[in-house]
């Protein structure tokens, strides 16, 4: 089952999947949580699947693909608008203009020009 959840002004894609008989998985954005129904009890315990620590409230821009940062257009402390171009990521002859998914202030730029990044790496954090 897939659904969209809106909390404040952010939208999350939530997917609920039955894994085994008494286990099910909930996927929120890139994060996965495993739930298990305990027999005879109403209580539900959960473990977090092996995924990196991420704060949901943080506005993080992630690398969509492995590549090299070829240009950065913003500075820390600067305000960016949604859809504003923030950097260029080169990958196998593709030049990818990364635009911000959110409006906000640049809290941290975690990459430098010419740095190699992996798919899913956090590039920029906004607040």
């Amino acid at each position: 089952m897939k659904l969209k959840l809106r909390i404040k002004d952010r939208e999350y894609e939530v997917e609920i999947k039955k894994e085994e008989q008494d286990k099910f998985k909930i996927k929120i954005g890139q994060k996965e949580f495993l739930f298990q129904e305990e027999e005879g009890e109403e209580k539900i315990s959960f473990t977090r699947a092996s995924l990196p620590k991420r704060d949901f409230l943080k506005k993080e821009l992630l690398s969509p693909i492995a590549g090299i940062i070829s240009e950065i257009f913003v500075k820390e402390g600067e305000f960016v608008k949604k859809d504003q171009k923030v950097l260029i990521l080169s990958a196998m002859k593709m030049e990818n203009e990364i635009v911000s998914e959110f409006s906000g202030k640049v809290k941290e730029i975690l990459v430098k020009k010419d740095q190699e990044v992996k798919d899913g790496d956090v590039l920029i954090v906004l607040i």
Partner: peptide, 10 residues
């Protein structure tokens, strides 16, 4: 020469 350019947000 070939160059693909993408604009990527979410």
């Amino acid at each position: 020469g070939i160059l693909t350019e993408n604009i990527i947000g979410k």
